[in-house]
Each structure stands twice: as structure tokens, then as C-alpha cells.
Design a protein around this nucleic acid. Structure first.
Length: 281
DNA sequence: CAGATATGACAAC
DNA sequence: TTGTCCTATCTGG
């Protein structure tokens, strides 16, 4: 479930569990044994989420950097930790709490300059007050790449994943293949505002909900989404099902190596629009 | 129980 | 664009 909101929730949770405490670290699986040994006994100063990256800042300046990737997961609990189950890359414990990390793409120790370098290569994070949406738009505006790929590019926008991007494009009425350079200032304002709002809500609720009240199951008399992902969405993973707004079948295609979903009616192509205009002449 | 699948990212063609 | 990493969970036989 790791899109940006998940990482923010984890950062807050870990801070509440461990901030100000001396933490013992180990790597039951063994693949982070060296780092765990260096980390063990340090006091956690604070935690931070930046896009999909989680940072634990410890005293002495070293930072633990975790990226969950596609499969990574944290588990935690109070009191004595259980015997490790599965491939536990990292275990952190205090007298009061324990935390296990499995399957991350990245789990490493970073020096302060390395933390700076990491943040320098990340784009505008809709969940951070220091985000610069104008810079992101400048980048989008001069690119022929599909919006879908640009919004997933973490050096353009940080923290967005497939669901937020897919759903935000639906809400803006833009097809995923729309070239970045065709995105109007109003289109970008809408997308950015939606990302800030939807991701912020997801941080509070722990799930991704993207439909307006008038399209909720109760409001429409339709059955709610039943898959394990939770929230209500317009098009993500709804291929061949009817659009909540117009009833057209949702389509799916590979784009930039990922699954993209869209409603062909609610998200027309700019080419179609100009083509229609030309035909009338 | 094998095989497919997953909200991601990167290196190598 | 393709292949690879990595782990848990869900699917079908």
C-alpha cells in the first residue's frame, strides 16, 4: 500500500513510538546486519517522510533511509517482540515497543550529505508545506511525455503512486496519454489541488478515497467496492466496469510499464477535440 | 502447491 | 522498452 500517505502515517507512528528513546537494532534476516550493528543504541531524534521515502534521524547525524517499494511492509507492537516470522530485514526495539521491516527496496544508513542528495532529486511533494508546484509545472509544460508518466516520475512530483495519479487524471478529465506540454495552467491547478486534498485525506483515514460525495455508493444506489484496497475510486482497477459518472466501460492499457485506466467519455483526448473542430470546417 | 499478482524503482539494452 | 529486485497474499487446480 505504499503511496506517499502511507509513509507519512508510518513516520508519525514511528516518531510516537521511538522519539527520544535509545533504540536497539538487529537484522534477523541478516541482510542489514552491518547497518543494524552501527545503528543499535542510537537515540531517535525525529522521523520524516519525503515522497515515498521514510527517514529516521538519529543522534550523531546518521539517518535510516527506508523505501518500501512494491512489497515492503512494517509491523509493530507493544512489549516483547515475537519470534521473527518471515524475512525480517530490520527489527527495532525499546522496552515498550518493537518494529519489524520486511521486503523493502531500500534499507540503508545515510550521512547528512546523502540525505540532502536524496531530497534534491525529489520533486514537489503535495503533502509537504515546502513543496513548489510551480517548478513541477514548468517541468511538465516543456515535456512531450504523457501526463501519466510525468506525474508518476518522483523527480517531478514526489509521493504520488498509481492510484492517486490515475484518479486525479480522471477528476481533471484528462486522458493519461495527454502530453505534458498540453496541460493548461488551470489543468495543473486542478491536479495539484486534488493531490493535496486527496493525499491529505488519505493520511488522516489510512485509505485512498477519490470520488465526490454525489458518486458515493449510498448516493447512487450502487454496491460499494469490494476489493481489499478499501476506498472508493473512479477508474483504478475498474477495467470493463461501468463509469460511475457516464456508464461507459472503463478501459485499461499498459503505459510507461504500468497499468493505466481511464474512461474514454469523461477523459477525451485533446486530439479528438481538435479533430472534431477540423472536421466541421 | 505452483503460479500470478501487487499502490515501485532502477539498471541495462 | 525490458528485465530484475523482493516478499506476502491471493488464485486456481
Amino acid at each position: 500500500m505504499p503511496e506517499g500517505h502511507t509513509i507519512y502515517r508510518l513516520a508519525a507512528r514511528h516518531q510516537a513510538m521511538f522519539a527520544g528513546e535509545k533504540v536497539l537494532a538487529s537484522s534477523p534476516q541478516g541482510r542489514f546486519a552491518e547497518g543494524a550493528a552501527l545503528l543499535s543504541g542510537a537515540v531517535l531524534d525525529r522521523t520524516e517522510a519525503y515522497g515515498k521515502h521514510l527517514l529516521h534521524h538519529y543522534d550523531g547525524g546518521q539517518a535510516l533511509h527506508v523505501h518500501l517499494g512494491l512489497y515492503g511492509k512494517f509491523a509493530d507492537g507493544d512489549g516483547e517482540p515475537p519470534a521473527p516470522v518471515g524475512q525480517v530485514r530490520l527489527r527495532l526495539t525499546t522496552d515498550l515497543h518493537w518494529l519489524d521491516l520486511r521486503g523493502p527496496t531500500a534499507c540503508e544508513l545515510l550521512s547528512p550529505p546523502e540525505v540532502e542528495a536524496l531530497q534534491a532529486r525529489l520533486g514537489a511533494d503535495p503533502l509537504r508545506a515546502d513543496a513548489d508546484p510551480d517548478e513541477a509545472y514548468a517541468r511538465i509544460r516543456r515535456s512531450p511525455t504523457p501526463l501519466f508518466a510525468l506525474l508518476l516520475d518522483q523527480s517531478v512530483v514526489a509521493g504520488t503512486g498509481l492510484i492517486f495519479v490515475t484518479e486525479t487524471l480522471f477528476r481533471a478529465g484528462l486522458r493519461p496519454t495527454t502530453p505534458g506540454r498540453e496541460l493548461s495552467p488551470e489543468g495543473w491547478r486542478k491536479i495539484w489541488a486534488d493531490l493535496v486534498e486527496l493525499m491529505g485525506t488519505a493520511v488522516r483515514t489510512g485509505q485512498i478515497d477519490t470520488v465526490y460525495d454525489r458518486h458515493l455508493p449510498e448516493a447512487m444506489g450502487r454496491s460499494p467496492r469490494v476489493d481489499r484496497h478499501g476506498g472508493e475510486v473512479y477508474v483504478y482497477r475498474r477495467a470493463a466496469q461501468p463509469c460511475h459518472v457516464c456508464g461507459t466501460e472503463i478501459l485499461r492499457a499498459d503505459l510507461a510499464g504500468r497499468n493505466s485506466y481511464w474512461c474514454p467519455t469523461c477523459q477525451p483526448t485533446p486530439r479528438t477535440r481538435s479533430g472534431l473542430k477540423r472536421k466541421k470546417r
